[in-house]
Amino acid sequence: MKLAALFVTLLAAGTVAANANPTVERMFQTANAAAQSGQYDVAITTYRHLLREVPTPRIKLELARLLLQTGENSEALALFREVHDAKDTPQAVRRNILSSWRPRNSVPFVSGTA
């Protein structure tokens, strides 16, 4: 997986939310720290909780990245497609999603947008 490209994608997707409250930001930081330390189950659980509360593209991409790393490809693909196909997703983010998906998966990335 092209981690550098995915990292750029995550940065381009922005923060958790423009007006994220401190609790949400802390949870996001906790999930990021858990992911970086290899505690994928904790990170995935936290990202899923955050996604229910604040369904931002950034959280979707972080969760999708971890799901892909842990072999949950169908759920990762659904989240990547959702962000990819959103009207306000920048082209650079779309390209990075595609380049992150292709090298690791035999399942084609078919989206509703070009």
Results as ranks from 00 to 15, higher is better:
25 E>Q: 11
71 G>W: 07
58 R>V: 10
13 A>G: 04
74 S>V: 15
40 Y>V: 04
27 M>S: 13
93 V>D: 03
47 Y>M: 01
55 P>G: 01
37 S>Y: 04
43 A>N: 05
98 L>S: 15
46 T>S: 05
32 N>R: 12
22 P>F: 02
26 R>N: 09
45 T>F: 03
12 A>R: 09
35 A>S: 08
69 Q>D: 15
39 Q>R: 09
20 A>L: 00
81 R>T: 14
83 V>M: 08
77 L>T: 07
108 P>R: 11
81 R>S: 12
24 V>W: 06
97 I>Y: 03
43 A>I: 13
30 T>P: 01
52 R>S: 13
22 P>C: 02
21 N>R: 06
100 S>E: 09
99 S>Y: 14
53 E>W: 06
41 D>Q: 12
51 L>R: 07
81 R>E: 10
105 N>Y: 02
73 N>R: 14
70 T>W: 11
25 E>K: 05
15 T>V: 05
92 A>I: 13
13 A>Q: 02
53 E>Q: 11
60 K>V: 07
34 A>M: 01
84 H>N: 14
76 A>P: 02
85 D>M: 05
21 N>P: 01
101 W>Y: 07
89 T>G: 08
40 Y>F: 15
111 S>I: 07
65 R>S: 15
28 F>T: 08
32 N>I: 06
114 A>M: 15
113 T>A: 15
87 K>G: 13
113 T>P: 04
13 A>C: 07
91 Q>M: 11
14 G>C: 05
60 K>I: 04
17 A>F: 00
75 E>Y: 09
81 R>H: 10
40 Y>E: 12
105 N>R: 06
76 A>G: 05
38 G>D: 02
100 S>Q: 10
50 L>R: 00
54 V>F: 04
66 L>W: 10
107 V>K: 13
7 F>D: 13
56 T>W: 00
51 L>C: 01
108 P>L: 07
86 A>I: 00
83 V>N: 06
9 T>M: 15
27 M>F: 04
13 A>K: 00
35 A>Q: 02
98 L>M: 12
35 A>Y: 04
48 R>N: 06
83 V>E: 09
10 L>I: 08
75 E>K: 09
102 R>G: 06
31 A>E: 00
16 V>M: 00
104 R>I: 14
90 P>C: 01
54 V>K: 05
4 A>M: 14
10 L>S: 02
65 R>Y: 14
72 E>W: 06
108 P>N: 08
28 F>P: 00
77 L>Y: 07
70 T>Q: 15
71 G>N: 08
35 A>F: 03
9 T>Y: 05
68 L>H: 12
65 R>K: 11
73 N>I: 15
89 T>I: 08
56 T>D: 00
46 T>P: 00
49 H>G: 11
103 P>L: 09
29 Q>H: 09
54 V>E: 04
6 L>R: 11
19 N>S: 11
86 A>G: 05
107 V>W: 12
53 E>K: 12
106 S>A: 14
80 F>T: 04
70 T>S: 10
39 Q>V: 01
55 P>H: 01
63 L>E: 05
11 L>H: 06
49 H>F: 11
69 Q>K: 10
55 P>T: 03
83 V>H: 02
43 A>F: 07
28 F>C: 04
37 S>G: 02
8 V>E: 15
39 Q>A: 07
95 R>M: 09
21 N>F: 07
87 K>L: 15
86 A>M: 06
30 T>V: 10
103 P>Y: 08
70 T>P: 05
105 N>W: 02
93 V>A: 09
